[in-house]
Amino acid sequence: MSAVARHNVKTTGSDARAMVFAHGFGCDQSMWRHVAPHFEGNFNVITFDHIGAGGSDAGGYDPAKYDTLNGYASDVVEIGEELNIRDGILVGHSVSAMIGALAHVERPDVFSTLVMVGPSPRYIDDTSYKGGFTVDDITDLLASLEENPLAWSASMAPMIVGNPDQPEHGQELADSICKLDPVIANGFARATFTSDNREDLCKISARTLILQCRDDIIASEHVGRYVHGKIPGSKFVLLDATGHCPNLTAPKEVVSAIRDFVS
């Protein structure tokens, strides 16, 4: 099965430069539905689902591969290769900001521009680094996900794997926003919140934009500024939006910041 099929890749827009939107932990490509369509006029807009999310095919799930964010990054590279992307723009939200950065480091020719929305290279505090969470916080999170798989009953219902030949498929997908495979989601949570990719930041040679929200408890402002400081020549924009999901809560601000950067 191709990566394009496996990851439910959707392609719209023109034949121009590719702009790939990567969703973070906790949802699927519908995270980008208020942002991505605004770029269809000038870009080849590509959205996809990470393994275990939305309409992805979880058949090939290998826990060892997805032990770290590199497994997710290699999927993004594979999609880029299959679509013959050159000098593409990779827009990554939350953990996918770092996944995108890893994909760029692996194949800088495929992705040469990065937009990082709410990035964090490490969520757990270190001696002089404030990631925002203690080891105990993350242990608590992972334990509560493990021990209480019904916790997200609303969002973690079993994924609907529909048959594209059947007309009701579209309806099913519309109803399955943010459907996650619980086992894979727990693995994704572990890979995300125990990651430490600080050393990878200096390997980034892409033109990079960092979009930072106010009052973001997942990736706070000083973490965003830390990322900005480690990536030479990067641009840092502090949005008026609050929380962790400006692509949903303040899409206009996000669209205009990205447009300013890429045009």
């Binding site: 932990f25 916790a151 609303a154 996650l180 408890i217 949903l248």
Partner: peptide
Amino acid sequence: IVFETSIVPLLSLHGHVDGVS
């Protein structure tokens, strides 16, 4: 973490959530 990463997107995209622990 669960609220910010999973419940906020659902509220925004779906308009509501029911019975979340």
